[in-house]
Amino acid sequence: MVVGAAIVLGGRVLACARAHPPPTAGKWEFPGGKVETDETEVDALIRECREELGVAIAVGDRVGGDQVLGHGRAVLRVYLASLCGPAQPTALEHSALRWLAADELDQVDWLPADQPIVAELRPYLVSAGAAPGRPVSS
């Protein structure tokens, strides 16, 4: 199982450019990673965002359905999330970070597994953009 965080702030979602491996370097994704055997999906997201971005998050509802990865060897699940505390994300494991509004989502080259999630997220960002800074509900 692989989990991703759609971190939303003020009607924008955080997108991360992969630094490696070479076949996916430069492609954009939601931060996250593999769920360890002793973790829940939420625990894994919290750990991954701390390791990859240096931030604490609160995890909310799922976005979209399961996305099959690696010829059926893994499943990606993405959750809405919000930042906890004053720390801002830092690209500790990615080559770049961008905050994208609903009308900017197509400006980056998303990984194939993230593309259906982006489509599901677009209406949420439009409604969240009407209330800047509104936190994600859990």
Rank of each mutant, 00 (worst) to 15 (best):
V2N: 14
V2S: 07
V3L: 10
G4T: 00
G4K: 00
A5M: 05
A6G: 10
I7V: 15
L9D: 14
G11F: 01
G11T: 04
R12M: 10
V13K: 01
L14S: 06
A15W: 00
C16D: 02
A17T: 05
R18P: 00
A19W: 01
P21Q: 06
P23F: 14
P23V: 12
T24C: 06
G26V: 09
K27C: 12
E29I: 10
E29G: 05
P31Y: 04
G32F: 07
G32L: 11
G33K: 02
K34T: 09
K34E: 11
K34A: 14
V35Q: 01
V35M: 01
V35D: 00
E36V: 09
E36K: 14
T37N: 08
D38E: 15
E39I: 09
E41P: 00
V42K: 10
D43F: 04
A44I: 03
L45G: 07
L45H: 08
I46N: 00
I46V: 15
E48H: 15
E48S: 13
C49Y: 01
C49G: 05
R50D: 14
E52V: 06
L53S: 03
L53C: 04
L53A: 09
G54P: 03
G54I: 04
A56L: 12
I57M: 07
I57V: 15
A58S: 13
A58F: 02
A58E: 13
V59P: 00
G60A: 12
D61M: 10
R62N: 00
G65F: 07
D66M: 10
Q67H: 09
G70T: 07
G70S: 12
H71D: 14
H71L: 10
H71R: 12
G72T: 04
G72N: 04
R73D: 08
A74N: 11
A74I: 00
V75H: 06
L76H: 02
R77A: 04
R77Q: 12
Y79W: 13
L80V: 01
A81K: 01
A81S: 11
C84F: 00
G85Q: 07
Q88N: 01
P89W: 04
P89D: 12
P89C: 14
T90R: 15
A91M: 05
L92I: 11
L92S: 05
E93Y: 01
E93T: 14
E93V: 11
H94R: 07
S95L: 06
A96T: 03
R98Y: 04
R98I: 05
W99D: 10
W99S: 11
W99I: 11
W99A: 13
L100F: 09
L100Y: 07
L100T: 09
L100M: 12
A101E: 05
A101S: 15
D103S: 14
L105R: 01
L105H: 03
D106M: 11
Q107A: 14
V108T: 08
W110H: 04
L111C: 11
A113M: 05
A113Q: 07
D114L: 06
D114A: 15
D114K: 05
D114I: 09
D114C: 15
A119M: 10
L121H: 04
R122Y: 06
R122T: 06
P123E: 14
P123Y: 13
V126R: 13
V126N: 04
A128Y: 02
A128F: 02
G129P: 01
G129E: 05
P132C: 11
P132T: 09
G133R: 09
R134A: 15
V136G: 02
S137R: 14
S137V: 13
S138Q: 12
